[in-house]
Design a protein around this nucleic acid. Structure first.
Lengths: 97, 97
DNA sequence: TTTTGATATGCGCTTATGCGCATACTATCG
DNA sequence: CGATAGTATGCGCATAAGCGCATATCAAAA
């Protein structure tokens, strides 16, 4: 769980938007994310792979879907980073992602 | 002042370490930073340029030196991101940068 | 004005990142 | 089993990032 790794993972618009969606605590399949973020399948899948490798999310097979959700074991210091980033994104003057 | 831009700027070990040093509120010349971070002159200079372009730091000419310091006009939401990142860096189990 | 110290920058190179395309893999359904 | 839906991945390509080297710039000092 490297800080730099986490920052790199967050420093990409599609991934950051995905985190924002996933941060609702629920589970989200790739098909949902790719539609909502207007990304191709392989693009979305790879971005989720990066987020997973960074330790930010975990996945689960559910029939033909793979459900991604926030990593429940994420250290507090990392959670604070993500929360701060998401909060900053919501401020006026900041374009989404 | 884009969130993604800030995250990219922070997502590099030398730059992150530089931010940590600069976040003491004081002014620091490139020569000091390059020594403390064990970087070459051009490397350090370029990294500082990235941090400056991201809006995290400002610089000032002082004789033959250029003094970098924390951008005093940094929006609160961005400050919170940096603070959270630096806090996470200091935790055990996280290698510097 | 020449020299010296500090910093920035053009250039070329190497590596990393992001992407689409096609294809493989996994699981359900008929 | 064959067809279908969702997801991952190998491959090649284009672009960006990071680096060192040499050189330019800028200001003080001799």
């Amino acid at each position: 769980m490297s800080v730099t790794r986490v920052l790199s993972a967050l420093a990409e618009p599609v991934r950051l938007s995905a985190i924002r969606i996933i941060w609702d605590g629920g589970e989200h399949c790739v098909c949902e994310l790719m539609q909502r973020l207007n990304a191709t399948q392989s693009r979305m899948s790879r971005h989720m792979g990066v987020l997973k490798a960074a330790g930010l999310v975990v996945d689960r097979r559910d029939a033909q879907w793979v459900r991604y959700r926030r990593n429940p074991d994420l250290p507090q210091d990392i959670v604070r980073i993500v929360d701060a980033v998401l909060a900053a994104m919501d401020k006026p003057g900041k374009i989404a992602a």
